[in-house]
Design a binder for these strands. Structure first.
Lengths: 191, 191
DNA sequence: GTCTATACGGTGATAGAC
DNA sequence: GTCTATCACCGTATAGAC
């Protein structure tokens, strides 16, 4: 099935970048994993920078889709925040990988301006979604003591990204859970 | 002054790793920066893994020293937490670099077990120091609504590390400040 | 679409002269 | 302590055959 090679490449590349970082993966790794030669990868993605940009855009769309679902199904602000935390917890995969954009943020220096812009857009979208969720929580009373929604959103994004990093360093979810414990406690039953 | 070459190497290496990550720096970068050949670096650090381990240990000692000073001079729990946030804010250097251990956590897969252990120890020491600070804050009443100190500590460490990452992605301190705004508000005058 | 072959610079690391 | 010389890869990328 040569038609979906591009999809396979994106799938494998995402996993490798999330485990090893942008500078820690190569076309050789990728080629070996899906069983073609490195030269063939260049047919699908002219340069590594093109691949990484496609990776971010695909990832951002997927996450945006998941958050849109959460917005539809999460009955309260607290439920939505709980769902957001779960997305990052799952992405940590027991300490073996990071959110793609957490991994790439650390390697920001090696990225092209286009990739950097996509990375910033990802973060802006996360903060925007969280801000809405905290606004809803203020309205529906599902979270105690909500501060300015935009500030709560910025803090929550940083918290879950940092929690991933600490979990990654110990190859375990435990530090992640410890870091988000107080936030989840504020969510009541939804947490 | 060939005697302090080792110190110069550590200084330069730390800066480069904090800007570009473990996999984004090479002995060649280092050699060029301090004006010797790559072969000479091997005299001081047999392998790259030895250099990175020395880097973490040196960094951990330096930060521990700074925190010990803060413990001595910070009159209240709130002042100590404020000082801790400032340490991470300074390390971000306007968005151009990360805390060494934030950078290395993202590249955890590429590190030797000894370096990984040192990284975990760094995080444990941070949480331990913060736990003490939050315990003090509970006792002196300098922070409102303190939860379980150990949980506050885990959340604070993740918050500042994540805030750095988001700042790094936009090459700016602004996202860092936005992320820690609510925590600093809880610190009252000390924030 | 994928291959072989190849270019060409970068990579950590070592041996041995000075 | 630092050098030159050299090693054995690995890195991204391209040309052109099939």
């Amino acid at each position: 099935m040569p038609a979906d090679t591009k999809a396979k490449l994106l799938e494998s590349a995402e996993r490798i970048v999330r485990e090893r970082g942008y500078n820690g993966f190569s076309y050789a790794d990728l080629a070996q994993e899906i069983g073609i030669r490195t030269a063939s990868i260049h047919y699908h993605f002219r340069a590594k920078s093109d691949l990484v940009l496609a990776l971010i855009e695909r990832y951002a769309e997927r996450i945006a889709g998941g958050l849109a679902d959460l917005s539809r199904t999460g009955p309260t602000g607290a439920h939505r925040i709980a769902g957001y935390i779960a997305v990052y917890r799952d992405a940590l995969r027991e300490g073996s990988s990071l959110c793609l954009c957490v991994s790439l943020s650390a390697d920001a220096e090696s990225l092209e301006p286009t990739a950097l812009s996509a990375l910033e857009a990802f973060h802006r979208a996360g903060v925007a979604w969280l801000t809405e969720a905290f606004e809803l929580a203020t309205a529906d009373g599902s979270i105690e003591r909500v501060g300015v929604p935009a500030s709560e959103a910025a803090a929550t994004l940083a918290l879950v990204e940092g929690a991933q990093l600490v979990g990654r360093a110990s190859r375990s979810v435990e530090p992640f859970d410890a870091a988000v414990l107080l936030l989840r406690a504020r969510l009541g039953d939804a947490g």
